[in-house]
Design a binder for these strands. Structure first.
Lengths: 361, 361
DNA sequence: CTGAAAGCGCTTACAG
DNA sequence: CTGAAAGCGCTTACAG
């Protein structure tokens, strides 16, 4: 081992007892008299005993390590997730091994295999693009959306979408452009579904998918948001702060002030969201809680499992699979400009007036 | 173990040879005849043999895992670093364990301790705020700046700063505001040093530190960049794209068009940099190369080390400790506006004219 | 309540 | 060139 602390036998020798007794005392299984157990614990602590995971792993078949798998570590959400998982895992005595697949499917399979080859006790997988998790051979906790089959725990993206939409609606917005980048993403579809459902009555909603756009016109192409404003859209509800940032800067650049002339909202409360001008209104996941639930369920499944038996079925389940999102209102959203309304319409109560041609898609 | 593949003895039995021979053949130490070795390798591959890391670790004292330590995983640079380290490590047969310390010093010590307790063979540490890495008890590769004592490998931040400055200078900028957030950061000081050194002749440079500002006025407070423009600054050279983004949006919001009225540059080419409008001019680190050098040096040190000997001194060294940065010119930087120049001065060649009151600080 | 023994899967001197 | 044996540090039946 790298570290060269005292071994279990050293404690046994120091106290003149057997290794078995030390082991039993330290694991608290209760086969040792209270006094002896206490003395053993004290000596172990004093000597700075740290069990050898390798020795234990060889004997028990448990490595006390879990894998963290994301389709692409480059995802700006990765820091939040990794931090929360690491906290939850280390509190439970587990180490976290990362696996990167750079968004590529075959690489992802390889990354998962490497984790299995390292004998992780389980893994937390955050799929994207609607990937279905196949049986990987160890307990798995999936963080995707509550509506995904096999999901273990996730933020209530639909509810988050509703909160964003209610917020926009209350401000008086009646023409909302939803911006996403991936029609195949469960998370995005839930968020958009929530937005649309809350805006269903009395508002017009259109969805703009960035990715298909970029496949045609290239990465970083303009979104044409100024035209959308000209068409009467007053709010841009993005499924990620990354898109919100893009929308915000494109609008600002076009001379369209946010939030005076158009509101912009995002999702996830990414690192820059509070410090850009105007700061982004967004909906935040409680990653700490999600991670705690995911890791908790995983650890439970690991504990119940017979390590010699390789067959594992579906992802683990948790009692509480749906964690509410929190709306964070900042400066990027405000009431829509009144000038948009048709002459003759009352502007006294923006919340009940709406531009012509409005309909449900 | 989680996975239940064939063990070494299984291969030995299948071929009617001893476990020792299988082990020797597979490790390629050459104590086995070529034909037998080949047959053993073939059988192992056929049976899908994957060695038990626990068994090996117990025997050799090597876990084939390294730790990745950053002061704060929430750092937007973390995805890039983690991805590159993971690639380099897994190519070398090592797993990567993450450790988070949330920016807190005592938590960082604990995180490193957890890694040691897990018997990592070595660790890659990316310090911040000028933290000095104390002897942690295993080989360590440090990624900080070339000028930091004990640094293993790093981007040439100073050179990156020079490139940014040369770029700005060539465009005609003569009053540059450098924006950083931490006077104690080696990385930031190197970048700023490079900028200042390249701008030394014929340009005025001032540095704005965000963090002291925020300690006084709160997180996300305005940077007062519009006033700086009024004072004649035409370029804002930020030590991170995060600050650049903040500067960009604040300027845009104030009606100061970027890059027409003011240029903004950043560092690191973070994920949003190419997609904001205008896209950010920045200087990029070659993290893949840095990670390869760091992990390579670490693995070498691990190989040369006697695992039973705990005493380890300074961080490992690499042959190539300095990796050039790459300037990425995008739309956020351009020639300064001519209107800033004093009446009577020639504006024909902006590169040789400069506002009054210019001096070296 | 406590201990002696076996064994997890590997690698490494050592013998032949 | 190949094999038998020992042992890395732990935990778990099993016996006392």
């Amino acid at each position: 081992m790298a570290r060269s602390g005292p071994k279990l036998t050293r404690i046994a020798r120091t106290l003149g007892v057997s290794a078995a007794t030390v082991s039993n005392a330290l694991s608290g299984k209760g086969r040792v008299s209270a006094e002896l157990a206490e003395k053993i614990r004290a000596t172990a602590a004093e000597l700075g005993y740290v069990p050898s995971l390798a020795g234990r792993a060889l004997r028990t078949g448990r490595t006390a390590a879990i894998g963290l798998v994301l389709p692409d570590i480059a995802n700006p959400l990765f820091p939040q997730i990794a931090q929360a998982i690491e906290l939850a895992a280390s509190s439970a005595g587990y180490g976290v091994l990362i696996a990167d697949s750079r968004g590529d499917v075959t690489t992802q399979t390889k990354a998962i295999e490497r984790l299995i080859d390292r004998d992780v006790d389980g893994m937390v997988i955050v799929p994207r693009r609607g990937t279905r998790i196949t049986d990987v051979g160890c307990p798995v906790a999936v963080i995707d959306t509550p509506s995904t089959p096999g999901n273990t725990v996730a933020a209530d993206h639909w509810g988050g979408g509703r909160q964003i939409a209610e917020h926009l609606k209350a401000l008086g917005h009646r023409r909302v452009l939803v911006i996403g980048n991936n029609p195949a993403s469960n998370v995005q579809n839930d968020r958009i579904g929530g937005i649309r459902s809350a805006l269903a009555e009395g508002a017009f909603v259109e969805t703009l998918w960035i990715e298909p756009l970029e496949r045609e016109q290239g990465k970083g192409c303009p979104l044409g948001l100024a035209e959308k404003v000209a068409e009467g859209f007053t709010a841009f509800a993005c499924v990620s702060d990354l898109h919100a940032l893009r929308a915000l800067t494109e609008l600002q650049r076009a001379g369209i002030n946010v939030p005076e002339k158009a509101s912009v909202t995002g999702f996830d409360d990414l690192i820059w969201s509070p410090v850009v001008t105007p700061a982004l209104t967004t909906a935040r996941m409680d990653m700490t809680r999600i991670a705690a639930i995911a890791v908790g369920a995983l650890v439970k499944a690991i504990g119940e499992r017979d390590p010699t038996d390789a067959a594992i079925g579906a992802p683990v389940t948790a009692d509480d699979a749906e964690v509410p999102m929190q709306l964070v209102v900042r400066q990027s959203s405000a009431a829509p400009p009144r000038i948009q309304f048709q002459p003759g319409q009352t502007t006294a109560n923006a919340r009940t007036s709406a531009p012509e041609g409005e309909h449900q898609p």
